[in-house]
Nucleic acid binder design. Structure first.
Length: 429
RNA sequence: GUGGCCGUAGCUCAGCUGGUAGAGCACUGGAUUGUGGCUCCAGGUGUCGCGGGUUCGAACCCCGUCGGUCACCCCA
């Protein structure tokens, strides 16, 4: 019988690694809550039509990367990103009627049927946030600065912030026409893929890595010339806010991104290429001022971003070092087992992470195991201790040992541990 | 979807020009009666990814297949 395996591109995260995941998630949750964001949880499955309408029919995500399936008469899709669902929920619950500005954050798995490679999986995890009802550019700058700070806290080296402005819908349409007009006579010199894009999604030719496309695009008209006065002012203000905040960034006029809903502000944050390989984009985001209305809601401007957890974990130099346990109770001899279980329970009631060595065996082997577990304190319960109502308390770090009255043990152990700041609550953020 | 590389114990890998397999780590027990981390001793497992071919004989050569990985495309 062939053993069952995890689905390609969908990975287990074993407990040894989960510590780092939790650490990144905690830092993120703290960061966004300091900025007034509240968590929202939306379904992993949405109507297929939501993504087609929000992300765009001609995008790669919609054309070939969605996990879609039919169920009775519904076409459903595992979410490839979370903004569409958040906007759907925002509209569905009429949130704009209750509050002028809404700040939401989320974390969870996304699904895209791509060929897996480093930092890119079919089930992957994102943290992200959305602001509804603020047309910026102050909050645009706030978000970018917040993310720069977040990556700093995660000890991510080589951070690079790229910004661009796509303009509003009209400016984008004008530019699109001009670009098609410029490229059509040169179509023969484009890559096959870009020749196809010329019809459906010409803007994406701009950030192609193909040499032929880069050459063809070099002298092409640039987007900034097509921005209207409002777009320009928005972008200028964003830049001056970022300058005032001292957040380093660079303008990349070829930055386009693959989702159709963006308008005006667009940004991307990259980490060190040596670590991340081809998938060096850590965060992608931008403004989507017409998406809420496009999905049947009111005219509410919005901006958001998403960051890839796996990539943050590759890039971050933070280590997880929390101990699994504070104390271990060692029963010596079968007669001591139930007393050990009881003592362990009493310790837990003080908030001490504690386990009893339920496998038994010699004192030596139990001590070895306790040491391997990273326990600070070991409580020995043998024949003589049981007879006298005492416990032998051994501090593995301090190499000290002392016999004490059983009833006092939980308190004393707690004091010892908090003096060494080793309890659950003292873990790093 | 396309291409490169790889596939030997739980993990990291060794195995010379073909003679059916090893190390380190990890794990478990022990080094005189109840005391860890260091050291020493002992212990186990492999359908050598799978299937076929060549050969007296294949982990090693050939073909196929599956899996992994990296890159392209695109993205987080």
């Amino acid at each position: 019988m062939t053993p069952l395996r995890a689905v390609k591109g969908m990975n287990d995260v074993l407990p040894d690694e989960v510590g780092r995941w939790q650490r990144v998630e905690r830092v993120f949750a703290r960061t966004v809550s300091l900025h007034g964001f509240r968590e929202v949880r939306t379904p992993y499955v949405e109507p297929t039509a939501l993504f087609v309408r929000a992300i765009g029919e001609t995008t790669d995500v919609v054309e070939k990367e969605m996990y879609s399936f039919e169920h009775h008469d519904d076409s459903l899709t595992l979410r490839p990103e979370a903004t569409a669902g958040a906007v759907r929920a925002y509209v569905e619950h009429g949130v704009q009627a209750r509050e002028p500005v809404t700040r939401w954050w989320y974390a969870g798995p996304m699904f895209r049927a791509e060929r897996p490679q480093r930092g890119r999986y079919r089930q992957f995890y994102q943290v992200g946030a959305e602001i509804f009802g603020d047309e910026g550019p102050g909050c645009d700058a706030e978000l970018i600065d917040m993310l720069a700070g977040f990556l700093g806290e995660l000890a991510v080296p080589g951070v690079e912030v790229l910004v661009n402005s796509l303009g509003g819908a009209e400016a984008r349409a004008r530019y699109r026409d001009a670009l098609v007009e410029y490229l059509t006579p040169r179509a023969a010199s484009l890559s096959a893929e870009s020749q196809r894009r010329l019809q459906g999604n010409p803007l994406r030719i701009l950030d192609s890595k193909d040499e032929r496309d880069r050459t063809a695009v070099r002298e092409a008209p640039t987007l900034d010339a097509f921005l209207d006065a409002g777009d320009k002012e928005h972008f200028e203000k964003l830049r001056s806010h970022l300058d005032a905040l001292g957040t380093p960034y660079s303008v990349d006029t070829r930055l386009v991104r693959g989702l159709d809903y963006y308008s005006r502000t667009l940004f991307e944050i990259k980490g060190a290429h040596e670590k991340l390989g081809a998938g060096s984009t850590l965060v992608g985001g931008g403004r989507y001022d017409s998406l809420v209305a496009d999905l049947g809601g009111p005219k509410v401007p919005a901006i958001g971003f998403a960051a890839g957890l796996e990539r943050l974990l590759i890039a971050s130099e933070l280590q997880a070092t929390a101990r699994a346990t504070d104390a271990v109770v060692l029963p010596i001899g079968a007669a001591a087992m139930s007393s050990a279980l009881l003592l362990a329970r009493d310790l837990r009631r003080e908030g001490i992470r504690c386990e009893a060595d339920t496998r038994g065996g010699s004192l030596k082997s139990q001590l070895r195991r306790a040491n391997a577990l990273g326990a600070r304190v070991v409580l020995i319960l043998g024949e003589s201790e049981l007879a006298e109502g005492m416990v032998q308390v051994k501090d593995l770090d301090a190499h000290t040992e002392e016999r004490m009255v059983r009833a006092q043990v939980p308190r004393i152990v707690l004091d010892r541990l908090s003096a060494a700041s080793r309890t659950i609550d003292s873990e790093p953020p």
